[in-house]
Write a protein that binds this DNA or RNA. Structure first.
Lengths: 204, 204
DNA sequence: TAGATTGTTAATCGATTAACAATC
DNA sequence: TAGATTGTTAATCGATTAACAATC
């Protein structure tokens, strides 16, 4: 019904969320689009356009209430709901991300860890299951999110299995690209590092 | 002199690099803009526009030579040069990234690890130095890149010190935003996860 | 009321797509 | 040569910025 929200706007939402959180913890209760835009390195116009995609959160002649805007953006992003996730590929990166996610509890629950070779040692207090247990586990535990910290060669195949398991979103660290209709956020570390190389290289 | 390359194009370069690498390892020697665009989910026009920002790499009536295009893009990104880096903040994520970077050797050298509390245990075969040794170390070892895997509160202050140490680029995992003129690539894990939440929430 | 600042429409800018002449 | 496909210019689309009327 309403006009579609562009991906560019969505990608700015977590930044708004972060800056509003900071303002809030500094005890600031109201902010104008101009002040917020300066803090964030945007134009005031853009701030107002962005926020108005979702509704009139401000008050003319006054500005925006920090606390309520923060809550609104959190709700739009869907921070509040309780997410359940599994992680597949418990190598170096997988272990680190596991601990990172475990620390987000109770808003976020990492309910299972999987690896091609199940290990005796626990990570983030959880045992590591073998890939053959994936389908059974998902049937029982119903995670919505799968974190892929595994090699790019196997990512597409695992993604297919996950789709059949009812996974609703993939956080992909594999470095490969996943096609298919399951929503996916890619964290391409190698790409990011290459872009840094380019930037260092100079503007040419 | 030539027209400036847009950031949108730059961000696609690592993807081209990745796909060309794959084609190359499959033994494919030539590819047309149409074929490459299909593989990557772009338009053929865009592929030609992108590549032409840097020069006429193709041949009319034929297409692009996979191997040489791969090499060209690598050179544009600056993959070849030998980078030296330090990493600051050897927690879970820092340890994992250290090991990731160590595996890139010899094209990339992680020469030093730092933490507020220097530890006895080595990570990725390297000892962990205290922050007071930062300036001296940089003077001697001349790293160009600093990887920040530390809390957002301290990131700006550390970034300032790094600038004075002659650091040319920052790979920032802190979750905070760095202002200043040192080129910086941000890996915002929390932001990425929130965007996944939004996508799962549905299109509205 | 007067001043401030939003919400929203219009103008501008830049990036993507389409078209086609050049040429291998 | 005829066919294919690039390089490049022109057209379109979408996102950002500017402007201003609405209103707190």
């Amino acid at each position: 019904m309403g006009k579609k929200i562009s991906i560019a706007v969505i990608r700015r939402l977590p930044r708004y969320y972060r800056h509003l959180s900071e303002l809030s913890s500094m005890g600031i209760t109201k902010i104008s689009s101009t002040e917020l835009s300066k803090k964030m390195g945007l134009t005031a116009s853009q701030v107002r356009q962005d926020l108005n995609c979702f509704g009139g959160f401000g008050r003319q002649g006054y500005g925006y209430q920090v606390e309520s805007l923060f809550a609104e953006i959190g709700a739009i992003l869907g921070i509040d709901r309780d997410y359940r996730a599994i992680l597949i590929g418990v190598g170096n990166l997988g272990s680190a991300i596991s601990r990172y996610l475990s620390a987000l509890s109770p808003f976020f629950s990492l309910v299972g860890l999987f690896d091609i070779e199940p290990k005796k040692t626990k990570v983030a207090g959880k045992e590591i299951l073998g890939m053959n247990e994936l389908e059974g586990f998902c049937k029982k535990e119903k995670p919505q999110i799968a974190v892929l910290t595994l090699p790019p060669e196997v990512a597409p195949e695992v993604a297919d299995r996950l789709k059949k398991c009812g996974i609703k979103g993939i956080w992909n660290f594999s470095g490969g690209e996943l096609k298919g209709d399951v929503p996916c956020e890619n964290v391409h570390l190698a790409d990011s590092l290459m872009i840094l190389f380019y930037q260092i290289g100079g503007e040419k």
